[in-house]
Structure formats: C-alpha cells, structure tokens
Write a protein that binds this DNA or RNA. Structure first.
Length: 450
RNA sequence: UCCUGAGUAGCUCAAUGGCAGAGCAUUCGGCUGUUAACCGAAGGGUUGUAGGUUCGAGUCCUACCUCAGGAGCCA
C-alpha cells in the first residue's frame, strides 16, 4: 500500500490530549476514525489518536466537495490525517471540537470487512477473540495507560529508595516452592526446565549481595484456575531487603502502594473517568494501613458469622477463602495488612514467629472493595539448620536447594521481601471486575489467541 | 479437577414442541448540531457438533465440543 510522505515527514503534531493548549490553531492530527455521525449536509466524524478522542465538524459548504465525499464515505477505524482548527465548544464532551478543513485517508477499512468492535455491547468471548482490536477502544486504552503508570511508579519507588533491580532467570531448573503447577519444557540434554513461578529465592541471593534489591518480570503458573483473579502469565514486582524484619517489610509495602496510587491519581484523572472508577475510593489510600493479625482476622470472621453477616463459618487454622478475604477487606477503607498466618499452610521458607512458632512472620495485603490479596510477603528463615529441616519436612529435593542453603551458610542475616501481582493491583486501582482487561494480551486457562 | 450456567444473522439478544425474528453493524435513501444520533429501505441463517424421541425440534433426551462464573490454589 502506498503511504503518502506526510505520514513520515518531520513535523510535530499535537496529540488530542493536549489540544486544549492549541485553541484557535490549525493543527494536523494523525489517527483513526472512531465514529461518524451525519445530519444532512453536516458530518460529525470523531477521531482518536491513542491519547483521546475529539469530534470534528464538517459542513458541506465549508470544504471542497471531494473532501466532503471522502469523509462521508469513511468506514470506522480507517486511518486518517486530518487538518483542522481547534475550537472551544460547550457541546463537546472534552470542551473542544475540530473544524475540519482537509482529510487524507491513509488506509480505508473495507466495508466488506467492517471493524468488528462496534460501539454497542459485546460478549467476553468475542472481545477476547478480538483483543488485538479491542485495545483500540477508549476504555481499554485508558486501562493500559494506567497499567503503564502503575508499573513505572512501582519501579520508580524502588529505584529512588536505594534498591538495585536484579531480575532472576525465567527458566528455572525446578519448582521454587514445590507446590504450584509449572510450565515445563525440554532444556537441551539437561532434562527439564520450567518457567519461573517466582523469582524470590534468586533475589534473596542478590539481596545478600546488594542489600536492597527488586525484580520485575513475568511469572507463570500452570494452575487450572478459572476465576476473575487469575492469569497463567502475569507480572510481578518483588523487593527483597537484607536486615529488615516483618515490621519493616509492612512499612515498605504500605509506602510502596501509597506511592503508586498517588502517581495514578496525579496523572490519570481523565482515564479513571473513562474507566468509570470512583476516585474518592482511591484518595483515601495513604499509609499507614490497618494491620491485623491472622488471629484478629479470624475473630472478625467468627463474629460476623455469629451476627449473620456472612454465610460460611470460618474454621480457625485454615487459610482464608476468597469470600473471607472480601469480608475482611470490606471492613476497611484502605488496604489491610494481615500478618502472622499459621505456618502450617504457608511456604517452607517463612521465618517462624519467636512469640508463637506455629505462626509465620508473613503478611498479605488485601485490597479494599473485595479485590483480595495483591501482595504476599514474609521474613525468610535465616538459620541454616531450620531451613534445612523445613526443606526436608516439605519433601523438597535437597540437592536443588544447596545454593539456597548456602545463603544461610555465608553471612546469613534477617531479611524479608514481598511480591505484588501487577494485574491484581491494576484491577483494584481501575475498579475492574476481571484481571484479563489489565494486561494487553491475557493468557488464561482457555485462551492463548491472539 | 469439580460444581453451575450459556451456545440462534458479523455483534447483542428474542422466539409456549407448529411460518427463525428484532436492534446494532454493512449497503442505498432522507435530515445543517449530531452525542452508542435519528427516520425509511435492502441484503444477511447448516439455530455449536453428532445421534435420538416426535406427524413436526432452535425448543425435549444422550454424548461430545466451546465459552463463562465459582471452588480448590495462588499474586
């Protein structure tokens, strides 16, 4: 297809998001046709450019006849280069309109294969099957912009607080924690390799080298989970810090989350409006966060059951189920940190509480409004002998953990870290009902296309 | 893996066991301020697949496929 020179020539073009700074100016917009309405000799094309949408107005008398016909014949999502004058107009949702003077078609979408995502409602299956086109819609674009800011703010928090980013391998020789289902692949003549389910064990090593470290990358779980909170491939950011204990870890987590939310509020009011998010729910998210022990949370659940506020009776000693987490988090207006769970159902590497060795020095951060766990973390066992016996108790292969045990042999110190699932954080901050909308191309149990 | 639910036009959905329909999208026509514009017309169907019951099945039965929600597990 022939592209005109103006697509690539060196000119600056204001984006739609910044048009308020160009009132009265004639500008050139490069984008796509989002919608087209007409009323007799008046055309109302709506353009998008990835930063927003703006309605153009084209009176037949105001432009050359061939320009009018060209616009009138446009199909949705055709790519166009528009010349027009920015004008403030109280009737426009954004406050501005574009008096179109000229329009060049870069590529016209064929009417025989119209853009499949209409402005009406669609089902989940259809939208996911067309995810490559769905991302063009205003709401999905807004979510992806917020996601980008959340990821940037998360990394920025650690980068500006003395952490060194040390990304762990994605291909690993064995299961990190022994329990989860992993994606398996052949690794030359050395047998099997697995896609990482967490970089935690590796960043414990780099934390003892560099003090404060974090990792940020994709993580894989082959669990056959089919819920609104699960993806088989998701992004996790994990700090690990030498010489901090559980209290320090909790302080880190609440400051970290507060920073991310502040950054989103700072730069994405318009996007959150498009998404339909109630921002007053985000404006309360400031450290310190409420902190309760597992025992206190369990007591809350017991009381709620007695008063008939929840249906299922919680059995002390078990992990919280999804409805339990929802109830606990609904009691607070900001994320709640639940600490000191029973060690019995927690990972083998968690440091026992010296005051009650049946409990682990761990913390889960439950997001408000029923979003559940967005962070899980703990203080790690620093004693060689205890860690070794835990590995044996969990029937994990001692050989594979020799390097991990070495960390307790050579200058072991108290250390702690947590992991935050990016998609769950995005779902909460954007107020979405499913994590599949929080990532450009979600990988779920039943979908690996497109 | 288990439980529950859903598959009908490109999309979203109707249709008591008795003529397979509407809105949107597409095409054509109308309208000088439309806001998922509106008004008129046209084209568009192997009712997920394979069997079965019945005079007759989109509808009832069986199996399978696909998808969704939830449980378990987790971030």
């Amino acid at each position: 297809m022939h592209m005109s020179e103006s697509v690539t020539e060196k000119v600056t073009y204001p984006t739609i998001a910044t048009l308020s700074e160009h009132e009265g100016e004639t500008i050139i917009l490069r984008g796509w046709l989002y919608n087209l309405r007409e009323s007799g000799k008046l055309l109302f094309p709506i353009f998008r450019d990835g930063t927003g949408t703006i309605q153009g107005i084209v009176p037949k008398a105001a432009v050359a006849p061939e320009v009018f016909d060209r616009i009138k014949g446009l199909t949705l999502e055709s790519s166009v280069i528009v010349t027009g004058k920015v004008r403030a107009d109280s009737r426009a949702p954004s406050g501005f309109e574009l008096d179109v003077q000229d329009l060049e078609i870069v590529q016209q979408v064929s009417a025989e294969t119209p853009f499949p995502i209409s402005l009406k409602e669609h089902g989940v299956d259809f939208l996911m099957e067309h995810r490559h086109l769905w991302v063009r819609t205003p709401r999905q674009s807004a979510i992806l912009r917020v996601r980008a800011t959340i990821m940037r703010a998360a990394a920025e928090y650690f980068d500006t607080n003395g952490f060194t980013r040390t990304d762990p391998p994605i291909l690993t020789p064995n299961a990190c924690e022994g329990t989860s289902e992993l994606f398996e692949m052949d690794y030359f003549d050395d047998g099997k390799a697995y896609l990482t389910q967490s970089g935690q064990l590796y960043i414990e090593a780099t934390a003892l080298a560099l003090g404060k470290v974090y990792s940020f990358g994709p993580t894989f779980r082959a669990e056959k989970s089919k819920t609104r909170r699960h993806l088989t491939e998701f992004w996790m950011i994990e700090p690990e810090v030498a010489y901090i204990e559980l209290d320090g870890l909790m302080e880190l987590a609440e400051n970290f989350i507060s920073h991310i939310v502040a950054r989103v509020l700072e730069g994405h009011r318009a996007d959150l409006k498009v998404i339909g998010r109630d921002v007053t729910k985000l404006e309360t998210i400031k450290a310190p966060f409420p902190k309760i022990s597992y025992d206190e949370a369990a007591a809350m659940l017991a009381e709620a059951f007695k008063e008939g506020k929840i249906e299922n009776e919680f059995v002390y000693g078990n992990d919280f189920g999804s409805p339990d987490e929802t109830y606990i988090s609904s009691q607070f207006d900001r994320p709640v940190m639940v600490h000191r769970y029973p060690a019995a159902f927690k990972a083998f590497y968690m440091q026992p509480d010296p005051l009650d060795p049946t409990k682990a020095l761990c913390v889960d951060v439950l997001a408000p409004e029923g979003y559940g766990e967005i962070i899980g973390g703990s203080q790690r066992i620093d004693s060689y002998d205890l860690l070794k016996s835990r590995i044996e108790e969990h029937h994990l292969p001692l050989d594979a953990f020799q390097w991990y045990l070495d960390l307790r042999r050579y200058g072991s110190v108290p250390h702690a870290g947590f992991g935050m699932g990016i998609e769950r954080a995005v779902a909460w901050i954007c107020g979405l009902d499913h994590v599949r909308e929080t990532i450009p191309f979600a990988r779920t149990l039943n979908r690996i296309y497109p």
